[in-house]
Structure formats: structure tokens, C-alpha cells
Amino acid sequence: MADIKIEDIIKSENLVFKKTKLFTDKPLSYCPGCGHGVAHRLILEVIEEMGIESETIGVAPVGCSVLAYEFMNIDMAQAPHGRAPAMATGIKRVYPEKYVFTYQGDGDLAAIGTSETIHACNRGDNMTIIFINNGIYGMTGGQMAPTTLEGMVSSTTPFGRDVELMGHPIKMTELVAQLPGTCYVARHAVHTPSAVRKAKKAIRKAFEKQKEKKGLSFVEIVSNCNSGWKMTPVDANKWMEEHMFPYYPLGEIKEI
């Protein structure tokens, strides 16, 4: 066994994992350790595995992932802040046979875009919403998000979120699961190998629901923001497990 050289292993016939070809060549603009990169990859892997890259149209939000369209080599639009579900509805209704998805953060989806989110879900628009919840506004420098936990420090809650003053963190995923228009609602994470595998299965299922024309599929990814939380990526993931998951429990919430 000692005589096996690394060069003997690194051969195309031994390849077990490589980057999906649906990534563009642009390096991701996200901070080291940020969950956005994995979430992007899973969406692209699902699109590639389903063979639907010519049939998919995406909508990027405002927030850290505003440039998602730079990294995903599929046709994409960039929406005004919070309006991605409305844009996606506009697209899906004129191209009912295409796969349409939005990619939105918590500020985009759960604050400024709450109305567009709820109504797209309620209409049962036959598309997929991928919701990245890291409990903070990353892009603008770590301000409180609607999903910021009670007591959690952000740049606009320097002494921790006071629910008396700011209200409670909103559970959008449970909320949209109540609506008859949603056909599949799940919450996952991308911080461990097993979590990533589950998240990918959920995203795949969400896209397949479009084929079945069953309504709106919604997958939340609870993610880290180590820059905004001011932790190392490894510590941020640990903090996420200890603090985010109890309030935002992972799992399948609804499937029709």
C-alpha cells in the first residue's frame, strides 16, 4: 500500500467529486466559510443532474447574493429588494414549462419582500424559493434581520435584540407552510456533510415539484454569517447548531 503514489490516485477514472460545470469561472464573492457557496452549488448540481440548465431561469435578490447570477451559468435576472417572487411569478406565468427559482436572504424574503413571498406562496405559483436564513443583514454590514434571534447582537442591536422593542424573530418557513399554495416546505442546513446531503435532496425535490405542477416549493437553508456574527467559520457553525437550530428546527415541514 505504501507504494501507491498520489499521482496514481489522481486519475480521471478515480474521480468521485468535482465542481459542477454550471458554475461560471468567477470566484464566489462570499466571505470564507459562508454557506451561500454550498447553497449555490447544490442548486447548480440539482439543475445539472436533472439536465434542465436550458430550461431554468433564476432570480437573484438584493443582499450578499445579489451577484448570484455572476456565478450560476444559467439565465438569471436580478430583482429589486424583496421582489424576486413577483419577478419569478411574472416569468413562470409566461413560461409555465420552464423551471423558475428565486434565491433570497432573510432581509430580502422576510422583511422587505414579505408580501411578495406570502402571495407567491399563497397563489401556489409553480416555482421554487430558496431562502437563506443567517439571521442578519450581511451585505450592509451586520444589521438586525427579521430572523435575528432574541438577544442576538447585530450592528443595530448592539445590546442584543430586545423583543419588546423589535418584535420576535419571524419563522417564515412555518408561516408559508400554512398556505394551501405551497406543496413542499422544508428547512435544512449546509454545515456538515450529512446536512448538505439532506439539503440537496430537498432542493432536488423542490425542483421536481415544478415538473409535477403541484404548487410552490420552498426550502429554507439555515446558514452562518461568520463575518456578521464575528466568529470563525467553524465557531459560527457551532453557534448556529446551538442557537439557531432550536428556534429554526431542521426537517421536512410539509409535502403534498
Partner: peptide, 26 residues
């Protein structure tokens, strides 16, 4: 032709924006 009543003018114009991105007449 698709006719859809949106939840607000904000949503309506963004539905228009979305469909307009695809080359459809909206």
C-alpha cells in the same frame, strides 16, 4: 394571454419586469 391580479402595484410592476426579461410582450 396571461392575466393575473397581483397583490399590489409593487408586485404587478415586478411581475412585468420579470416577464419583460424573457422577451415576452407584457
Amino acid at each position: 394571454m396571461v392575466v393575473l391580479q397581483a397583490e399590489s402595484e409593487l408586485a404587478a410592476i415586478n411581475m412585468v419586469y420579470g416577464a419583460a426579461c424573457t422577451g415576452k410582450k407584457v
